[in-house]
Amino acid sequence: MADNLKDLSDAGVSIWLDDLSRERLDSGNLAGLIRDDHVVGVTTNPTIFAGALADGEAYDPQVRELAARGASLEQAVRELTTTDVRNACDLFRDVHAATDGVDGRVSIEVSPALAKDTEATAAEAADLWKTVDRPNLLVKIPATVEGLPAITRTLAEGISVNVTLIFSVERYRAVMDAYLEGLEQAKANGHALADIHSVASFFVSRVDSEVDKRLEAIGSPEALALRGQAAVANARLAYAAFEETFAGERWEALAAAGARKQRPLWASTGVKNPDYSDTMYVDQLVVADTVNTMPEKTLRAVADHGKIAGDKVTGTAQEAGEVYAKLSSVGIDVDDVYLTLENEGVEKFEKSWDELLDSVKGQLANAK
């Protein structure tokens, strides 16, 4: 029987689960995924935590304890979420050690309400790092214009970062520049570069959702023929930018001092269009030095019927560029697509954060 997840891992793709909850931790589900399904990391976001806190009773004992000591709403949310992340970090301790710190990583995101505030983002990133207090944590910071200097500042303090909500290759290049600058400052600050890790989360499925909607509005045969091609092409162009950046003189100087590459992470890899293969954002983005973080539904689909057939990315930049040339020729404003997706991404996470606050507020009230 084929072991698609092993094949994916052997191809150099780190498999991370895009989900975390107290129930997963307490039931042994996450431990089983690590043991049996080659899962070597976890990502979270406000939407994931909002769903976890609203579902089930696993958080009730801690909520009662928080209510009994009069914790504020903000304190309660911070303690509930960082407890899950800290416990997950501990669960991945052996993976972290076995991979020299590359994997065994768990991510937690700064409040999305701070996405346009550099100072507040950097301050919260430092506070989350201190609160979780685990070396295999990644603090997620969105790749907004305001987030870029916060990324640099956070790395400069020796804090490992997951840069999230990246949609365009242009912004991705700015993210990599912020990473290199952060490492340079960290070195000047006396931090060991080998201890600083980072991934750059490049969102995939949302690109197809937005571009396909616009192609269908155009409606010409040429436009409709391009559906389902934008997201994979975009990711392949991003990987070409990664290869270029992490082969230059600036990077080589940092590598000589022990620095690690900031790996591309394929995020939002659950397929939203039922007309497409439910494993396409895994099968078509196999390449070494990457992470694919996927919901369990996608993980199970890949295990069952994924088509893992080696490197599908290296050397594809020209073909991917041709896809974008065709998109422009039929009337797709790709810059507007990226701006729309970034704004929507921040808004969705802000809405989820508000839902999380409302859920915890109600639970605290009921516990009193």
Score class of each variant (00 low, 15 high):
residue 144 T to Y: 01
residue 364 L to S: 08
residue 84 D to K: 11
residue 237 L to E: 06
residue 265 L to D: 04
residue 140 K to P: 13
residue 329 S to T: 11
residue 233 A to R: 03
residue 174 A to C: 13
residue 125 A to R: 02
residue 16 W to I: 11
residue 210 E to M: 08
residue 144 T to F: 02
residue 154 T to F: 02
residue 225 A to P: 06
residue 352 S to D: 08
residue 240 A to L: 15
residue 128 L to M: 14
residue 295 P to E: 09
residue 69 R to S: 04
residue 184 E to S: 13
residue 341 L to C: 08
residue 106 V to F: 04
residue 84 D to L: 15
residue 199 V to T: 06
residue 346 V to R: 01
residue 194 A to R: 06
residue 270 G to S: 09
residue 123 A to I: 04
residue 48 I to W: 00
residue 169 V to Y: 03
residue 4 N to A: 14
residue 327 L to F: 00
residue 153 R to D: 06
residue 323 V to N: 08
residue 353 W to K: 03
residue 24 R to H: 09
residue 364 L to E: 13
residue 58 A to Y: 01
residue 332 I to R: 02
residue 97 A to W: 01
residue 283 D to K: 13
residue 164 T to M: 00
residue 273 N to W: 01
residue 265 L to A: 07
residue 157 E to G: 10
residue 200 A to V: 05
residue 138 L to E: 05
residue 287 V to T: 08
residue 52 A to N: 05
residue 294 M to I: 04
residue 186 A to L: 04
residue 252 E to Q: 11
residue 131 T to P: 14
residue 128 L to N: 09
residue 219 G to C: 07
residue 101 G to K: 00
residue 157 E to A: 15
residue 161 V to D: 06
residue 23 E to A: 08
residue 286 V to C: 09
residue 360 V to E: 02
residue 30 L to G: 08
residue 193 L to W: 03
residue 361 K to I: 12
residue 311 D to N: 10
